[in-house]
């Protein structure tokens, strides 16, 4: 089975959900016309990234009664969507979230687990952290979603892999940093190496959408990619440019790679469990 995945990298209007919804609808329409089965939007694609006090006023509740979310649900009837937004729960906690929408329904919402709060980042000042990571079933097989800092921690992709995910969908709003002699920023190189490593180590597909544009002095570097289970690059969007980049993946490659390289078969999860229990002193 072959599917086409669209990576939508673009700039957002900071805190203006309606303007950003329009940008989503344009790209959904374009991706649909180009035969894409799934379109992946960056982290906080409906709001912009450095929200600070705008976090609470740009939040939404992911159900039909919300007009913005409802429009996205409708749009997901003939193309699957992964969108980024501020998720307000019933008790007024605010999360950085990505939702997977398909056939007019929400299949899964992932609340960002790791909120970077160091250096240039201040996320946990404004947001609550998610406390779970789960794979879920889609019409393309089992999938896992992570958001930016989530995949700077190897444990989360690992858990999704064990939970059955064969396609990892990553969204980020990664500020560019680390200018040296290299033609790419350190941050771009680091993220791409990591994504390639996850694809190869877990023999899965890794599709990553990163945004572009600027917020005050921060630049976002784009460079969205898809890697296949051999760790090979399927497609890469340009750095710093607005783009709708479409890559086709062949899900049968999972069979071919895993019969050659049965890393998943050989993974000793009980050993991992035992050692984690020992390390965490669970039986003390």
């Amino acid at each position: 089975m072959k599917i086409k995945i669209a990576l939508a990298q673009f700039n957002t209007r900071l805190g203006d959900v309606k303007a950003n919804l329009e940008k989503h609808m344009e790209r959904i329409d374009a991706a649909r016309k180009q035969g894409a089965d799934l379109i992946i939007f960056p982290e906080l694609s409906l709001t912009g990234y450095a929200l600070q006090d705008l976090a609470v006023t740009s939040a939404l509740r992911p159900h039909q009664e919300d007009p913005v979310y409802n429009e996205l649900l409708h749009a997901s009837k003939d193309i699957d969507l992964m969108v980024g937004f501020v998720h307000e729960d019933r008790r007024h906690r605010f999360y950085i979230a990505s939702a997977y929408l398909s056939g007019g329904k929400t299949l899964h919402i992932h609340d960002k687990v790791y909120l970077p709060t160091y250096g240039m980042f201040d996320e946990s000042r404004f947001f609550a952290w998610g406390d779970s990571v789960k794979a879920f079933d889609t019409r393309f097989g089992r999938v896992g979603m992570l958001i930016c800092e989530d995949f700077w921690h190897a444990s989360l992709p690992y858990l999704l892999w064990l939970d059955g995910a064969d396609i990892l969908l990553f969204a980020s709003a990664s500020p560019g940093r680390g200018l040296h002699e290299s033609p790419r920023l350190s941050s771009s190189e680091w993220v791409e190496h990591t994504n390639r490593a996850y694809a190869g180590l877990f023999t899965v597909f890794v599709a990553h959408t990163n945004r572009v544009g600027y917020e005050d002095g921060l630049n976002f570097w784009g460079g969205s990619t898809i890697f296949d289970p051999d760790g090979n690059l399927v497609v890469r969007a340009p750095d710093f440019e607005t783009s709708l980049c479409i890559g086709e993946i062949d899900l049968n490659q999972l069979y071919r790679t895993r019969t050659r390289l049965p890393i998943l078969r050989d993974e000793r999860t009980t050993l991992v469990q035992n050692e984690l229990e020992r390390i965490l002193n669970i039986h003390d």
Binding site: G176, L179, H180, E181, S182, P183, R184, L185, Y214, G217, N219, F240
Partner: peptide, 16 residues
């Protein structure tokens, strides 16, 4: 090492 890739710097700063 204070050497920079000037093509990349120009790209980011003109965009900014």
């Amino acid at each position: 090492d204070l050497k920079i890739n000037t093509t990349l710097a120009e790209k980011i700063l003109t965009g900014f």
